[in-house]
Amino acid sequence: MATGEQPIEPNVLLRLDGVTKVYSLGDGVEVHALRGVSLTVHTGEFVAVMGASGSGKSTLMSLLGCLDRPTSGAYFLEGRDVSRLSRNELADVRNRTMGFVFQSFNLLSRTSAKENVELPLLYAGASTKVRKERAMEALGRVGLADRSNHHPNQLSGGQQQRVAIARALVNQPRILLADEPTGNLDSRTSIEIMALFQELGRSGITVVVVTHEPDIAAYATRVVMMRDGRVVDDHRQVPLAAVVPPATVEDVEGGVLAGGAP
């Protein structure tokens, strides 16, 4: 990684410096999604980004994930300014540094869990052998090693999200970015996913979760509140330990119905 552009504090993973994002809707109409956000995230933190819709939290997420470039300001990722990289260079950064988890899972349909998890390695140019090994390892980490040949429509919602997390982890990223990861899950499965995130945080992966649910934010070590494109509150907290309650009949049935498992 490049150094020297920015004096690195120990453990600083990323730093946003006065970042703005303006969307132009045509006819001179502009939307200021971010109005100067500065934020420093350290390695191993579990950050929850909260805010109402339109507060700019999703825009912040796409900038952090290198899916988009800021209109102004700088974004240092591991000491390197990535705010002016080309589309191709950003793709490489995403592939090597980021893992993404989405609200709607976004697994490739009619494709086995294993092949879904292998995808990032495919784009990283890993050999078939390495891909198979690492995909199985990642699936094992989320507890789905025995489901590796199942297709998404044969898995429950929680299982699909765990496959998506395995896919996000398979390239050994520094950051895991999750956009409303529990939005489509029942509360019990949500707690399972949060437990998994807390475990990843302990193993040194930085987790950033965008959510509008305070229940979910409670599991984070740090909460960033957004409003009208600005950070209005940023505090560290003692996280709630994610303990999965014992299963009840209603939960199982609810999970089956919600997840659409066979």
Partner: peptide, 9 residues
């Protein structure tokens, strides 16, 4: 999704 996980244009 493919782009997010590292596929270049």
């Amino acid at each position: 999704v493919r782009m997010a996980i590292g596929a270049k244009p």
